[in-house]
Design a protein around this nucleic acid. Structure first.
Length: 515
DNA sequence: AGGAATGAAAC
DNA sequence: GTTTCATTCCT
């Protein structure tokens, strides 16, 4: 079955969800289910032409929270499980047309921020309304600053604030929107684990920044937090009249109690877009395997790692979630899971300094985060707040498994190294966060496959591997290169935005150079 | 620290 | 047109 999701804001945007149920007749009720989530949205990797719109979206467009009595994102499910969004929230029309006008009509930034904070922290705020898998448990972010991808740095001043969400019922219409962007309705869909007791399945949140929730029956989750805006999440998909909800839920019913173990992944082209096809093992024989298609940048919450994705840089650029790299064997956890605790996030948020967002650049998230940060700071006298954020041992949590992956750990060690020996750098002393050039497409490719090629050609010198990688790169089709090109482009744009001087060449202190 | 690849941006 | 530097890791 195919779920086709259209949004009125973007008539051209079609999100297709394909459920393929492959009931094998091998005696056991083994089933392979494919939840296919494609978003042909301008903001998705397959669409690179929305830059100008995204720039417009740089600025938050928060508005007073309105309790809309009409379902905002309501999907009707027919027998073919095809549904279409038909109601268009007024706030959306508003913001999509007006862009930054409203948000910044207030000359007084402080008032605006105050208002923003009030809105976001109000009882009506979506931030306060999500029903967590385990409401008594805070949402945990495990990754430390060291475990994060170099480009996967959270915004400044975030904190793992954990709003206590109240129960969210499907039958209610509490969906509310603080902000909307016409271009950024890039919901993230993925499989969910469902609990009989909750209307929501999994629900994770990046501190005050991003959450995604899965709704019972639909397994649709929406998560928002577009890279440029750091906005909050406010788009829920509701399923109504889903007659076979029980059927849909059947195989997923028990998923999530212990998490889903990633056992395989592959990339493929679907709907003209690169997608990831992931297979998970829920650990219960009866349930068989769960296969999911998702975007390359889809974040998962992984045991001992926190947010992870196969393309951390893409994830942070697209969705604002700093991630570790995801690997085979990773266990995706539901929130509140016992294994999703006991992490040390100290240092994580310090890295946010590298994002020199101003309050006006950011969203309510920023305000909330700042408030939480201040709160934290006042509580924990702790010591010098200005510790080297690139220091501290890397990957305490992130590289627990022996899968030897590069980016996170090596990046961290490298960062630490470069810091210690950073006197050569012109910016080391004064600007603590030495920015690095973003990787180009080939570099991204090489990084991803170097290990694989090294294993494939044991004994080969790393330089020889580079030659092979270069050779392979040249033989690749444009289509194959595309995802790397897009990612590189996104990284470059983000880097330029955050640190325009990043490409500045160092002055060669030997000789008087340059001619 | 050098080197091996490619590519982007600064010179 | 040339140089630098992104990544990685062995020498």
């Amino acid at each position: 079955m195919v779920w086709e999701v259209k949004t009125n804001q973007m008539p051209n945007a079609v999100q297709k969800l394909l459920f393929v149920v492959d009931k094998r007749t091998s005696g056991m009720t083994e089933s392979l289910e494919l939840l296919k989530c494609n978003e042909n949205l301008p903001s998705s990797p397959g669409y690179a032409s929305c830059d100008e719109h995204m720039e417009l979206d740089d600025l938050p467009e928060l508005q007073a929270v309105q309790t809309d009595s009409t379902p905002t994102a309501l999907f009707q499910l027919g027998t073919d499980i095809s549904h279409q969004e038909y109601s268009r929230p007024s706030w959306n029309q508003h913001t999509s047309n007006n862009n930054s006008e409203n948000a910044y009509s207030c000359e007084n930034g402080v008032n605006w921020l105050t208002e923003l904070a009030n809105i976001a922290t109000s009882p009506q705020s979506p931030l306060m309304q999500c029903s967590f898998y385990n409401r008594s448990s805070p949402v945990h972010i495990i990754a430390t600053s060291k475990s994060l991808h170099s480009y996967a740095r959270p915004p400044p001043g975030s904190s793992k604030s954990d709003p206590s969400f109240s129960k969210y019922h499907l039958d209610e219409t509490p969906v509310r929107h603080e902000r909307a962007s016409s271009e950024s309705e890039s919901g993230i869909f993925c499989m969910s684990s469902l609990s009989d007791d909750d209307d929501l399945g999994w629900c994770h949140s990046w501190p005050s920044t991003v959450w995604h929730c899965f709704l019972k029956g639909t397994r649709l989750c929406f998560h928002k937090g577009h890279n440029k805006e750091w906005q909050t999440v406010e788009h829920f998909v509701r399923a109504e009249g889903c007659e076979n909800e029980d059927d849909l839920m059947g195989t997923y019913k028990d998923y999530g109690s212990d998490g889903l173990k990633l056992i395989s992944h592959e990339e493929s082209i679907s709907f003209g877009e690169s997608v990831l096809k992931l297979t998970f093992d829920p650990g219960t024989v009866e349930d068989g395997l769960l296969t999911v298609e998702c975007r390359l940048d889809h974040p998962f919450y992984v045991k001992n790692k926190g947010w992870s994705s196969f393309y951390p840089s893409l994830t942070v650029v697209q969705h604002g979630i700093p991630c570790c790299e995801m690997h085979i064997g990773d266990m995706c956890l539901p929130p509140g899971h016992p294994d999703a605790i006991n992490f040390d996030d100290s240092g994580v948020f310090d890295t946010f300094k590298s994002y020199d967002f101003t309050p006006m650049d950011s969203s309510a998230v920023y305000v909330l985060s700042s408030m939480a940060r201040q709160r934290r700071a006042s509580l924990s006298c702790g010591g010098s707040g200005s510790q080297d954020f690139e220091r501290s041992e890397c990957s305490k949590n992130c590289v627990a498994d022996g899968s030897s992956q590069l980016s996170s750990s090596s990046l961290c060690s490298k960062a630490g190294k470069s810091h210690s020996s950073g006197t050569a750098s012109a910016m080391s002393a004064t600007s603590p966060n030495k920015c690095k050039r973003p990787m180009n497409a080939f570099m991204l490719f090489a990084k991803k496959y170097r290990v694989e090629y090294t294993q494939m050609y044991p004994g080969k010198d790393n330089r020889a591997i580079s030659v092979i990688l270069g050779d392979r790169w040249k033989k690749m089709k444009n289509e194959e290169r595309r995802m790397y090109t897009l990612e590189a482009k996104a990284l470059a744009e983000e880097q330029k935005r955050l640190n325009p001087d990043c490409w500045k060449r160092k002055r060669t202190n030997s000789g008087s150079q340059q001619h």
